[in-house]
């Protein structure tokens, strides 16, 4: 079981709800993935239209946990206000906290993120901070009361996977008991499996499923990869080595292999 805050889950895949070809394909992909947690967001509502409500009714029908984000926020004040509005709208104290520091690569602003996280934790939020893979930033986030961390593998939507494998490993080794969810940059199921093999607790992704040619099949592929990576981590991976080592026993090697 996978514990986040006070709740437990079977699935270690967290799936976004954006960018699907249609609402029906989104619904089918979510169900095929087996995810129990989906991310959602907020937007300006046009008067006399029900667009937001239709989407919310669909999500509620799935009986999954929702994790609202503060996407698009560039300041602490914007992020805090958006989180408060999300709590009111979605009736959850969970928030995926995004404070963007650079428009070019959507890199999180570590300083604003820590400040916003401190404020929101004090207000009773379970903050899931979308952060860089910097160890000290992660430690600061824990210091202000975050209980879960969501470091990026690479910038949002790039599909590049884990760019800094060393740093990803360091986070896992140094923050042994903190739930770590790889968030952003995942492009292939093998990227997700790699994170799980490293001992990450879960993977959050969206574009890689939603923008694939067959989102429903890709959702299944990610679910399998995440399971495979998790089982592999638990089974204990062999250490990599530079030199060859025979896997076939050498005892009883036939005569033609023996030196004179």
């Amino acid at each position: 079981m996978f514990k986040l805050g006070e709740k437990s889950f079977h699935s270690r895949l967290l799936l976004g709800t954006a960018l699907y070809p249609s609402p029906q394909i989104m619904m089918d992909a979510i169900q095929a993935s087996g995810t129990q947690i989906v991310t959602v967001s907020l937007r300006r509502q046009a008067p006399q239209q029900a667009g937001g409500q239709k989407f919310w009714d669909l999500i509620r029908s799935l009986k999954v946990e929702v994790l609202p984000n503060t996407a698009g926020c560039h300041s602490v004040q914007e992020a805090v206000t958006t989180a408060q509005m999300a709590r009111d709208l979605f009736e959850t104290n969970w928030v995926k906290l995004e404070v963007i520091g650079d428009e070019y690569n959507l890199q999180p602003d570590p300083f604003g993120l820590v400040e916003a996280a401190r404020t929101l934790v004090q207000q009773g939020f379970e903050v899931f901070p979308y952060c860089t893979d910097d160890l000290v930033v992660c430690q600061r986030l824990l210091g202000v009361g975050c209980r879960i961390l969501m470091p990026w593998g690479s910038p949002i939507g790039t599909g590049l996977g884990i760019l800094n494998l060393y740093q990803a490993r360091v986070l896992r080794e140094r923050l042994e008991n903190v739930p770590l969810i790889l968030d952003a940059g995942v492009g292939k199921p093998s990227h997700a499996a790699q994170a799980m093999e490293l001992g990450y607790d879960g993977v959050l992704l969206n574009t890689a499923v939603a923008q694939s040619q067959d989102p429903v099949a890709m959702a299944r592929a990610f679910a399998m990869a995440i399971d495979a990576g998790r089982v592999a981590h638990q089974a204990g991976l062999i250490p990599a080595r530079d030199l060859a080592k025979p896997s076939t026993p050498v005892t009883g090697t036939p005569f033609w292999h023996q030196k004179a």
Partner: peptide, 29 residues
């Protein structure tokens, strides 16, 4: 720029020049 809790809707007045943000659920990653 300040959040207004749902429970306060009935006790809140709008004033000249106010800037309202009214948000609803949408898809997100």
């Amino acid at each position: 720029g300040s959040f207004v809790p749902r429970a306060q809707f009935e006790h809140t007045q709008i004033h000249e020049g106010d800037e309202l943000e009214v948000l609803s659920p949408m898809q997100g990653g």
